[in-house]
Design a binder for these strands. Sequence first.
DNA 1: GTCAAAAAACCAACCAGTTGGTATATTACT
DNA 2: AGTAATATACCAACTGGTTGGTTTTTTGAC
Lengths: 212, 212
Amino acid sequence: MKTPRSAATRTKLLEAARDIIRARGYSATTVDDICAAAGVTKGSFFHHFPSKEQLGIAAIEQFNETASEIFRSAPYTSRPDPRDRVLGYVDFRISMLTREIAQFTCLLGTMVQEVYATHPDLRAACDQGMSEHVADLTRDIQAAKQRYTPDAPWSAESVGYFMQAVLQGAFIFAKAKQDTRVAVESLGHLRRYLEMLLGQPETGKEPTPCRT
Amino acid sequence: MKTPRSAATRTKLLEAARDIIRARGYSATTVDDICAAAGVTKGSFFHHFPSKEQLGIAAIEQFNETASEIFRSAPYTSRPDPRDRVLGYVDFRISMLTREIAQFTCLLGTMVQEVYATHPDLRAACDQGMSEHVADLTRDIQAAKQRYTPDAPWSAESVGYFMQAVLQGAFIFAKAKQDTRVAVESLGHLRRYLEMLLGQPETGKEPTPCRT
DNA sequence: GTCAAAAAACCAACCAGTTGGTATATTACT
DNA sequence: AGTAATATACCAACTGGTTGGTTTTTTGAC
């Protein structure tokens, strides 16, 4: 962080790591791969990061910060009704599915699958990052619950985790099929479920039948 | 398949691959790891499989066959009402979450995340295996739809994929948290959504309110 | 004895991480 | 301001160990 050049190199390494790991996973990504993509030598790599694992942790943190900013500055966050914000989040994620696969998938979800049993620090970083994002979501869900269905038997947090689970599963099918249609339809089902959980908007008209 | 001993060695290698890859992922799993776990030398490994990738494909196929048998012989499949079979499937998967993480997670979902961009044959095998399982599920969903909500706007297949997406996402959180509570709650949300989609059982009583 | 199966020894390529050193800043003193 | 001292940023070459895969040898069933 001292010189601008140093910060730029560090950022290039983190971005290269983010992109390559999202495409190939953590284990299959070599330090040489990351250095080549960042246009940096291995000596420089190990000047900035003490190990591949520490780079992984830094990449997770940076990915989470970037993601937080994207969602914090997304248009739906300014809607006054928390229910609209929750559904707007889902719509926003559906709209992201038009990009390349490696551009909308989750670095943390990809990594934790292969490192949870062997790299405790990486696992913990992924857990923390995903839980923070769920906590952000949970705030809007809780507000919507309070307003529309305060006595519902489910917890706002469990719905936040459920939303992330659907997203992570949708990413897996997008990768397996090299196609986002299943992912789009799955997020559509998620949206329908949330509409049902959070009830109808405050206009007070009859709820649509459950079956539709 | 020639001698019984040969078949036993092959099975041991496939089972070792299945267990280690589920815990550490495909790339981080070495041929030596698999040989050690199977109690077999490397020379023997390459007598049975021409490459690590071919072993991976064989492991995917065997995993899928084993899984098919488990679900085909599960108690819920004998229920007469297709809606009960669909919900029974979810309950059965919830009950599986009491085992060790590496015993209930999906080899295919774990693998496809890290190989989809680099190993086309593995990706295709995972896609096919997951799609076959969805097709099995879709049959019951379609039957339940026909019986209870034939005009609903969603397709049975998209619901089948949605169910698998929730499962895969639940596995990711089980790994990240080293705890199945989030997974159990997510499958609970999935169950509630399916109850809503498939309507109420044929007893003809009033539907419970959507919000509960 | 023959031939498939298993073992043992081996290999070239590759891996994460080190080395010893050079370039480029930043600071400190005059 | 000028410049010596110091710290940071960077790099090419190297290392010990590991990788997927091969070759050669031994075992064991018929």
